[in-house]
């Protein structure tokens, strides 16, 4: 019986098999790269705001506390975006002619609010509460990164659920003393694991499973 397949069929078979493997792996790699890239997550992508507000300047250079503008962060689920009046507390005296602040002055004159673009926008089915986190020793920089070093505000983390769970499953790795919550430069000490366990007891953080219960964040 004559050969059914020419010799080149061996090559074709190998190319097809390996090609297919490479193609599938490549497709997987490409998908995960796009999924975790700033293109999808928006991490570290500064958004176009009505005023190019610099947290770096106001926090690091001017020494303004987070709570000076985000007044409701300890009392409410929402940290609060400062009203025009708060900006004008200083800017009624400083940079009063700066063209970059024209829309701010216009907002004060007309009563039309500035339209800031949300940088950290959680899906509406997530019920996040700032006051609860601040009260239990989770600092600003835990989620927002070094905002005090951001000339233009950007997202520091993906805010994906798996990212939230990293802490909800092991809060002792992230919890810090309450008086360090607004300390942007705070870093976990070498004994964070023990200190974290102590703080969990001290702040009555319920680690019996409530932190990972669906309805804690989704209602």
């Amino acid at each position: 019986m004559a050969q059914l397949f020419p010799k080149s069929a061996n090559v074709h078979a190998r190319v097809t098999i390996f090609g297919l493997v490479i193609l599938i792996c490549g497709a997987g790699w490409a998908t995960s790269t796009i999924y975790w890239s700033p293109y999808t997550t928006n991490v570290d992508v500064p958004l176009q705001q009505p005023i190019p507000f610099s947290h770096k300047h106001h926090v690091t250079d001017d020494g303004i506390d987070c709570r000076y503008c985000h007044t409701s962060v300890e009392k409410s689920s929402f940290a609060g975006i400062p009203p025009t009046e708060t900006c004008m507390t200083c800017h009624s005296q400083l940079w009063t002619d700066a063209p970059v602040l024209a829309s701010l002055r216009n907002s004060l004159a007309t009563g039309q609010p500035l339209k800031w673009i949300r940088v950290n926008d959680l899906p509406d089915y997530v019920y996040f509460n700032h006051s609860a986190h601040v009260a239990k020793g989770i600092g600003c920089s835990n989620c927002h990164g070094r905002v005090d070093r951001m000339p233009l505000t950007r997202k520091a983390e993906t805010l994906y659920m798996r990212w939230c769970l990293r802490c909800h499953e092991n809060p002792q790795q992230f919890i810090r003393p309450r008086d360090k919550v607004f300390d942007m430069a705070w870093r976990a000490p070498p004994n964070q694991e023990e200190q974290g366990q102590a703080l969990i007891r001290q702040y009555h953080v319920d680690t019996s499973g409530r932190l990972t219960n669906c309805s804690t964040c989704h209602r």
């Binding site: 409410s76 929402f78 609060g80 975006i81 609010p113 339209k115 899906p123 509406d124 089915y125």
Partner: peptide
């Protein structure tokens, strides 16, 4: 589901 038609603090 991400952007539900409800009023959140300071929403438009």
């Amino acid at each position: 589901m991400m952007n539900q038609p409800k009023a959140k603090p300071l929403s438009e």
